[in-house]
Each structure stands twice: as C-alpha cells, then as structure tokens.
C-alpha cells in the first residue's frame, strides 16, 4: 500500500507541479479580466441631463446608476416603457457638490446643461461625456452608441437601436402610402416646428408633415395666425413641445379664427415626454400618430 501511495503521490505531485502554475495562470487571468472589466465598465454613473437619463436607463442595469436628474422622477417625464425605474434611483439637481458626494466614475451631461457645474467637475478630474442635443433620429442612434461605448455596453447599445428600428419599421408598415397629411401642432405664440428639428423628424416618422414643413421653413418659428390658416391640417395636436403640466399651450387653439378648423379636425394628445429627447421614447409619439391615421383616413374617406 505504501509504495502505491508513494507511486501515486509523486505522480499527483508531478501533476500538481505541472498544472499548478497553469491553473494559477488561468485563474489569475480570469480574475484579472473580471477586475479589468469592472474597471473599464463604470459602476457609478451619474446622468445630469433628462435625455441622457433615458438612454442610460436603457443601457445599463439600475445598480450601476449613481443618480439621474430629478426631472426623470416626475411622472410627466417617464420614458416609454421605463416607468418605475427612475423612482428607485437617487437623483441630482445638476449641482457639482451633490454629484461629487455620489462619487461617480462616469458623468453624462448634455452640451447645454449645467455648463458651470460640468466645467468644474471636469476640472476636478471626473470622467465626463457630453452629448449634443439630438436633431434627428440618426443623432439619437449616434448618441446611444456614444453612451454605450462610455458605459461599456456596446452590444446592448446595438440591441437598443435594433429594437427601436424594428418597432419603428413595424409601425411605419401600417402607414398608408401616398402624400403625407399635415399634422398641426400650434404652440405658444404660434411657435411652430419646421424642417430639420427633432420634433419634425419624429412627426415624419409617424407619417405626417408638420405645419412648419407645409409652410416651408427651417427650425422653430413664430408664425402669424393668418399664415397658419392657409394650411388645412388633417390632424391637430392639443399639446405642444413647449408645455408643462399647467398648460397654456392650447390657448392658440381657442382663438376664434381657429375654432372652426379645430372643431372640424381630428385631434390627438402626444405627451411631451415622447418628443423632448431623441430617444426610444419617440416611438410613443409615432405609435399615437400612426393610430390616429385611421381616424384621418376615415374622415378623408367619409
């Protein structure tokens, strides 16, 4: 027995001697990779902008989010399909101090939000990624990729984009072919969206032209009421991109000159949160516009 054991032991020892370093190496590499991975992928991410809030919540697990803006906790701003997530997260108000206390390893900010705080945080050595406001849906795709890369979730970013594109395509398949009818969104002071705005791109994606496109101008503009009356819209919005809960946005619709047109035209309400940001929530607006098309068609047909 003894020699056997002796025979067996040196073998085992030899095997261990041979395998030990290998095993250690393999295990070491695994640990190292996990650590490196964790280092590469920020674990305490702060978002200082309503629009980066939504993209961040779609791209990473809530456990990796140190805080989002207080705006995201307001129900009027809840992104499509993400209700409830923000309410479990910590919030910030765009102040350097509270963000420093949350000790983030990545800060996401919009180019125009809380610029002084962002500059100070950058000066203090925090890792900051700023994104430009989206003017098109392609801008949105680019921003999703930028943030995906920053948070170490490039694959998930592609998934989010693919899911968005698939849903958008499915919705757009329901849009009847032919000329796009006009969707009138008359804002405060007759503020109207023309070519090359995010709002217009979302409306176009839903199968309509905006009033501003029908009138033929770029960007946002105040349009005199008589000019508004020249276009007969197929659908009217009762909210605008520039409203908050206590809304005076629909005041223009109560103007006597508009009343006849308003009464004769189908209306929809598109919650502001679907058009504020270039983010997947825009699908909410597209869904509503596509659904409303049936009423428009029925009206036109009848």
């Amino acid at each position: 027995m003894k020699p056997k054991r002796h025979i067996g032991r040196p073998f085992a020892r030899r095997a261990l001697v041979a395998l030990g370093p290998l095993f250690t190496l393999v295990f070491g590499i695994m640990v190292f990779q996990a650590v490196a991975d964790a280092q590469a992928r920020p674990q305490r991410i702060v978002s200082m902008n309503l629009c980066t809030d939504e993209l961040l919540m779609r791209l990473v697990d809530p456990s990796r989010i140190a805080s989002v803006t207080y705006l995201s906790q307001q129900s009027v701003n809840a992104p499509l399909g993400l209700d409830g997530i923000a309410s479990k997260l910590k919030v910030n108000h765009g102040l350097a101090e509270e963000i420093l206390m949350q000790k983030p390893d990545l800060v996401l900010a919009g180019r125009f939000t809380a610029a002084t705080a962002v500059n100070l945080l950058r000066k203090l050595g925090l890792h900051i990624v700023t994104i430009n406001p989206e003017n098109t849906l392609d801008d949105m795709r680019a921003n999703i990729r930028t943030i995906g890369e920053a948070v170490g979730e490039t694959a998930r970013a592609e998934q989010v984009i693919a899911k968005f594109d698939a849903r958008l395509a499915a919705l757009q398949a329901q849009i009847p072919p032919g000329e796009m009818p006009v969707f009138a969104d008359i804002g405060v002071n007759n503020f109207i969206s023309g070519e090359n705005t995010l709002y217009t791109h979302i409306v176009n994606a839903g199968g309509y032209r905006t009033l501003g496109q029908a009138l033929g101008f770029d960007g946002f503009r105040n349009v005199p009421l008589e000019q508004v009356l020249l276009v007969r819209p197929a659908l009217i919005s009762t909210t605008t991109a520039w409203t908050s809960p206590p809304s005076i946005s629909t005041m223009a619709l109560r103007h006597p000159a508009l009343r006849a047109m308003v009464e004769a035209t189908p209306q929809i309400t598109i919650p502001e949160r679907y058009t504020t940001c270039g983010a997947p929530s825009a699908l909410g607006a597209v869904e509503l516009l596509v659904a409303a098309r049936k009423a428009v068609v029925a009206k036109v047909g009848g």
Binding site: A96, R111, T113, T116, A117, N119, K123, N135, F220
Partner: peptide, 23 residues
C-alpha cells in the same frame, strides 16, 4: 440655434455663483 442654448443664456443672465471654480 436651439431652445437649449437659449435656456443656457437665460439661466446665465439670472446670476449665480453656484459651481464656480477657483479659476
């Protein structure tokens, strides 16, 4: 160029010493 840039200008005009740096 966009409502965000306009808002930034307006907020700046309102006056504040929040988050200034030693610079």
């Amino acid at each position: 160029p966009n409502p965000y840039a306009a808002a930034e200008i307006m907020f700046w005009l309102m006056g504040s010493v929040t988050d200034r740096s030693m610079d």
